[in-house]
Structure formats: C-alpha cells, structure tokens
Write a protein that binds this DNA or RNA. Structure first.
Lengths: 338, 338
DNA sequence: CTGAAAGCGCTTACAG
DNA sequence: CTGAAAGCGCTTACAG
C-alpha cells in the first residue's frame, strides 16, 4: 500500500501475476478467455498494485471514449443545471462519464466547444444548440449528437424537446379565458425553435379567438435577468400597459417579477404573470407563479438515453422525442381588475 | 469538404503536405523547429482535411490530459451549479476542459467517481468532499486535488473555503443585537468543516453574550428541502418556538421558508429568518431574506486557479484560500414581537 | 486457454 | 531544419 513512484500499468500487473500482458488484459476486461484461477490471480495483483487502467490508452485502441459531451448555454440557469444533472445521472447509470462545456451565457463559441469534443473523441454529444452549425460540424466528424430543448436539424439529428407551440397556446388561452384582452408576450429570441414555437402558440391562441396580434405587446428582450427587468419596466410604465404577461422562459419571468415588485404592481390584481419553465422561486413567492412545468432533469436523462441508443444503432432514422410540459395554474393568474 | 470515410490523422496531413509525420507534428503544435513555408503548408493541409488532433493519443504520449475533474454533490443545488460554472470558466480560460461528476445528492460513491478521474488521467480535480477518503485516494494516485467549500485534509491538500465560523458568528450576533434570545440553528451535518464551523460560530456568538447554548434549539435535519421543511414544521409547532432561525445553508432555508409559509407564520414579525448562502429566490420573496452571501461562481474559479497553479508547482506547501462571505441584511430579520 | 506481435495516433529525443 | 524510430498503455486478431 506504499504509493508507487510510478503508476502501475497492466505490464506490472502481468508480471506480478506471472502471466503475459494479453492474458492480464483478458482477465481484467472479461473479454476473451482466461482460466478461472488465472483470472483471480490477476485481479488480486491488480488490486494489490492499486492498478487503474488508463482510459486514454484503452480508448485510443478502441477509437472512441466512454464519455459523452454535454454543451449547455449557461449552468447558472437552473434549467440547464438540471438538464446537466439529468444527463449525468443517465450517463453514469450506463457507465459513461460526462464532459461538460458551459458556454458561459454565450461568451464562448459553440463550434469551438464542439471541436474540443471531437478532439476528445467522445462517444456522442448532447447539445442545446444556437444554430445548425454545431450539429453539422459534429456530423461531419462522425460524432452522433442529440439536440435538446431546441431543434435546428430535425431531418438529420435526434432531438428531445417539448411541444412548445401547444404549451404556449395553453398558457395564452388560460389568460384569455380569465378575461384578459391585453396579453403581452415577453420573449428573448424567435430564431430558435423554442422562441419561435412559443411565439406561434401565443399567436394561434389569439387568432383562434378572433383577436389580432398586437405587435406592441410582443416585446423582445435580452436574455439575462437584468435585461428582462429593464424591458418589463418600460412595458409596465407604458400607457397601454397589458393586464397579463406571458414570459417565454424562467429568466424572463424573473425579470418581469422583479420589475413588477419594484414598481409596486400587485400580482395578480394589477397584472397576471405566467411563465414558460418552472423554477424553485415560483412556488416560494406570494402569489405563486403559473408556469409550464418542464422536468428538465428528465429532459437531460432522455437526451442521453436517446444518444446512447443512437450509438448502438447508427443507421436508424433520426427521432425526435417529445416530452410532456403541462401547464400548472397557480396564484399569479386571475381575472383582470375590471 | 466531402466528409472522409475515416477521420484524418496526422499521417494524412503529413502526406498531403509532403512532409514527414514528425515535421507535421512540430508544425502543428509549434514545439520544435519547422520552416515558415513548411509550417504554412502543413496548416493548410490540416485545414483542408478538417484535421482535429486526437487528444487521447496526444495525452497518452504526454502522460496526462488537459482536463480537470470536478466532483459536486448535487448540480440541482444552485450553489454547486454556480461552482461548476465558475470552475468551467476558469478552466476554459486556461485551455482546459471540465469533466463533471455529479453525485446525484449522495446516491453515488465519491471514491468511485474519483476512480473515473484517475482512469482518465485528468490533470487534477476540484472536489466538494464528504470525507478525507477522496483526496487520500487521489493523492495516492498522484493526482493533485483541491477541496472546495469544506475541508478535510488541510495539512496535505489545497482548499478554497470561506470563513464559516466568522460569518456564522456575525449572523448570530445580528440576531442577538435585534433582541432575539431564542435563536434556533437548523443544520444538516456537523461532520464536515462547513457544518461544524457554522455551529461553532453560532455557539461562540451566544457564549460571548453570556448565553447558554440550548440543545433543544439546535435542530438536525436531512439535507434536502422536504426533510428541512418537515423538521422546521415540527420546530415551529413546538411550545417553545424560537423567535429567530438561522438556517445553515440555502436548502435548509428554503425548507424553513416553505414551512413558515404553510403554517401562516409571518416573517419577520412571528419569526426572523437568516440563511448561510444566498439564492435567487431570497431576493424575490417578500420580505427578502437576510443571508451570508458566498459568490460561488468565484469560489469555483478560485479552485481551478489554485489547482492549475499547484500543477505548475507540485512541491509548494498546501495552501488554503479563504474567500469573503459578507452578511447581507435584508427584510427577513427584525426585532422579535415583544 | 495463453503469449508474442502489431497497432491505435500521437510526440519526442536522436541522428543527420 | 527535417526524418526515421521508439514508445506512451492498452486491446486484439493470430498462432500455438
């Protein structure tokens, strides 16, 4: 148990057990034949020497590592953190390890992150993409990938998403059913499927009731809390203030909530608020916040599961897994003050 | 630009550029000589072929990878998620990649996670340990590590922590200054330095005022929100209910907050609440919550920085970096109702 | 059932 | 300044 000056290699194990390297390898990996007695002797020797096989050497030979890459936009957002946690769970359960790249909120280039994955010869990657460039790149380098949360390449790439359109429509209808007519949408982008589909769901609900989409009520915001708060503040201060606001994700909802609080707007009497995405704070504040609840841990798990299945069956046609995202009505939405 | 059937290797690049493999390697890595014209020719060839060097092969030769392991308790806790985000930032800035292991709230064995890191021959690991076993193990295998948040092996291992004792004492004194005499401590463990030192800080503050520590007011709880809520509910229902509660971390604070809300206890008039750790919800609820604010992103960054410095200078004595964790007084703490 | 040999894709002394 | 050769630690056909 004295630490060796040098890490033990399989050669050391073989010598200690009095067998050849090949036999030691077979005994340890369980692939190929090895007499029971020999197997035990080798394993004992490995244990004695504190032998830990070099994953790099093993994977170099096998041409691929037992690691999956996960690329998220910003780990500080609980949505992505939960996603990563779920991906980690599923990977661990199947003997894989996770290599995580956090884009730091967009500070880093996606494709650069993908290149690191290719260099590491990961078995595959789970990615929350910002464009089709990243899965294109990975595809060209023959590394399987699955898009998660949003989708850019449905024809060529697996994906795990929720039905954004349907859920957004439900939220909007819920607000309309309560009697709201001036329902604003706070949104940060409509280039990705998430934003676009949520926007479309919002429009569809309005149009189904014979209402026109008022462009002045669809407000674009930056992606962080501070930007959302500033945008919401301006909106709430306008003469034609909406009676209800649908925030297209949890960060935007947080900004809107903070803006309303600072301005002394009372929820839900002055303003109804609904969010796409749940977050812990939404059931802690008073009133609690109506939200589309995505189980992002489950999304992460599903993504890794899809990826690992894809690796086993590379020829299967691309599949898009759609997870449930039910609307959960809470205290922040109510009929408008007459 | 047609995808090759097989990934390009340095041999392919060398052939395309009309040089030897060694020269191609030198031209690409920038180590060793290569004529300017040759260097350009090789780089052009590499680009044409979409060559991405195999990190495994490179690191196998170099005996260590350019990746650092990060082991956290539970990514769903914003404290750890932010820590991981900070670690990722710092690593990326210095050309390292992060391999993340999430223990899933304790479901997985620490040492097992550490073994995977050893197998990958990571350059080092940042770990939020549960005992000294993990850094022992890593040390035996010659992989440098830094303990973060809590510390088990100050004599042998680098660490990045905050002054728990001092901050906990400040919180308790703040509560005592407001006039509270029945100040409870809600805590999940006292085996780690975090819990023990926070407990000690609490005791010190009490004793400095000539008050005895009432064992009935020091309540142990499980580590998740549900357990904390249940424990707090029992505490709040007891005849000798405290007038103030100090929760030893953000999860416990969340449980206590939810318990108080469910029981109709008004904060701060019925109960003052203070937390060790800040969390987004603490500035969203009414009233906002008094907390010891740790910048966990900064903690993660500092940990990776320390680790990388350690790698460059393996012989230096172990160092413990102590970061500031100021008490931020908000609305949840006030004098007790007479 | 076991061992000698080749090879995964790189880097790095060492000659030239 | 460049190339041939060795070797990092494994696994895997291939003989025996």
């Amino acid at each position: 148990m004295i630490p060796p000056e040098k890490r033990a290699t399989i050669r050391d194990v073989a010598v200690a057990a009095g067998v050849s390297q090949s036999t030691a390898s077979r005994a340890l990996t369980g692939r190929g034949y090895a007499a029971e007695a020999v197997r035990e002797r080798v394993q004992e020797a490995a244990h004695q020497l504190g032998y830990v096989p070099d994953a790099m050497a093993r994977h170099l030979k096998q041409r691929v590592s037992r690691s999956v890459g996960v690329l998220v936009h910003d780990l500080r957002n609980s949505f992505y953190a939960d996603l990563a946690a779920g991906a980690g769970n599923a990977a661990r359960a199947r003997g894989y390890t996770i290599t995580l790249t956090d884009l730091g909120g967009g500070a880093t280039d996606e494709v650069e992150g993908a290149e690191a994955f290719v260099a590491m010869r990961v078995a595959g990657v789970v990615v929350t993409p910002g464009s089709a460039a990243i899965t294109d790149y990975l595809g060209r380098h023959r590394v399987p990938s699955v898009e998660v949360d949003r989708q850019f390449a449905p024809a060529t790439c697996d994906a795990v998403v929720v039905d954004n359109r349907k859920a957004a429509r439900e939220v909007t209808e819920h607000l309309l059913d309560l009697g709201h007519r001036r329902v604003a949408l706070l949104i940060d982008e409509t280039d990705w499927t998430t934003g676009r589909e949520r926007y479309e769901g919002y429009c569809t609900a309005l149009e189904a009731r014979g209402l026109e989409v008022d462009r002045g009520l669809v407000v674009a915001s930056g992606w962080d809390v501070a930007a959302a708060k500033a945008t919401a503040t301006t909106l709430f201060a306008s003469p034609a203030r909406p009676t209800a606001l649908f925030a297209a994700n949890n960060v935007l909802a947080e900004g809107a909530w903070r803006a309303a609080a600072d301005m002394g707007l009372h929820i839900p009497s002055d303003l109804s608020l609904a969010s796409f995405d749940d977050a812990p704070w939404m059931t802690m504040v008073t009133p609690t916040v109506t939200a589309v609840v995505q189980d992002s841990v489950a999304v992460g798990e599903a993504a890794v599961t899809r990826l690992l299945d894809r690796i086993e069956d590379p020829a299967a046609p691309p599949r898009t897994v759609v997870l449930a995202a039910p609307l959960t009505v809470r205290g922040s939405t109510a009929p408008p003050a007459s």
